[in-house]
Design a binder for these strands. Structure first.
Lengths: 159, 159
DNA sequence: GTTAATAGTTATAATTTTGTAACCATTATT
DNA sequence: AATAATGGTTACAAAATTATAACTATTAAC
């Protein structure tokens, strides 16, 4: 066995592949049961909550969603006035989607709702563990965002 | 603003909610393009790779999949001889699913395939960052598994 | 000015996931 | 022995995601 020759990189990849379904279990399920939004809708709202404003194409790239899907998801969010759309003044082809005040408020509330179960489950951890976990998750998040940006600049082959 | 009063717990939850779609982008998409398995199939295989052997119900609980879905996913995996099924000798209602040698090998290969893109993207990190990341991801994974077990023992209301 | 490329939409189909209800076999309860 | 509960399957429907192709509007390239 060459198991002890595993690189940090191997470990990271294995862990990410394990973490994904665990998060899916806890988060996607909470979205389904606790909100009237689909996971896709909420991920778009979350991305806009983070970035403020993005073009349709950028949204698709960030979340790896096919363009037509982005169109329909954004449409639903617009109907609820959680986001709004406006044209780029320089290039009228580009449509920017921006989160509204209502959208920000809604996302915050939903985040709270969704967090409830996790919150409860995380209570078995003591303060120290929780602090470690917040740092670990922060680090992972930052790296993933960094990687994502990277891939947006290089690999811009259309979805 | 009471923003600076955010607890570690709040931060963890926000981060997890952000991390999920980022992983979904990188992993689910890779599964779709690089393998002939569906994400669901692969998550079942991955869980069995981790646990070795689980009952149908346990698989569903681990991944939050409805029972009928588990049945169909396992069936496909059995067709490819990646897992096999056998009855519990004490309680003949229970059917255990166990990963085969072929399944272990297949999962290892797929993990490699899927990791390729991530691997490439992670190369912008230096050795130190990579080590930190491997620790952070390991910590997060362990905690999530711990939380998951917890929820399996208490909340055993059927999916 | 014509052609090519880009941003986004519309329409439509296929796949995957989720949700329900009815059902069989087996075990537990009384 | 009769009844209830559990583990799993079958059958089916609904929702969500993914994938394509054709299309409009606008900008870029020649």
């Amino acid at each position: 066995m060459t198991d002890n020759s595993k690189t940090s990189l191997d470990i990271v990849i294995e862990n990410l592949i394990s973490i994904h379904p665990l998060l899916a279990k806890n988060i996607t399920r909470a979205i389904r049961t606790k909100t009237h939004h689909t996971p896709g809708e909420l991920f778009v709202l979350g991305t806009l909550n983070h970035h403020g404003k993005l073009s349709m194409t950028e949204i698709g790239n960030h979340l790896s969603l096919p363009k037509p899907h982005v169109t329909s998801l954004v449409e639903k969010l617009i109907c609820e006035e959680l986001v709004e759309r406006f044209h780029d003044t320089n290039d009228r082809r580009i449509i920017y989607i921006q989160i509204t005040e209502k959208g920000i408020k809604e996302f915050r509330e939903i985040k709270n709702e969704i967090g409830q179960d996790l919150r409860q489950k995380l209570q078995i951890l003591d303060a120290e563990e929780l602090k470690d976990l917040s740092q670990a998750s922060q680090y992972l998040k930052d790296i993933l965002i960094k990687i994502l940006q990277q891939s947006l600049n290089s690999n811009n082959t259309n979805i």
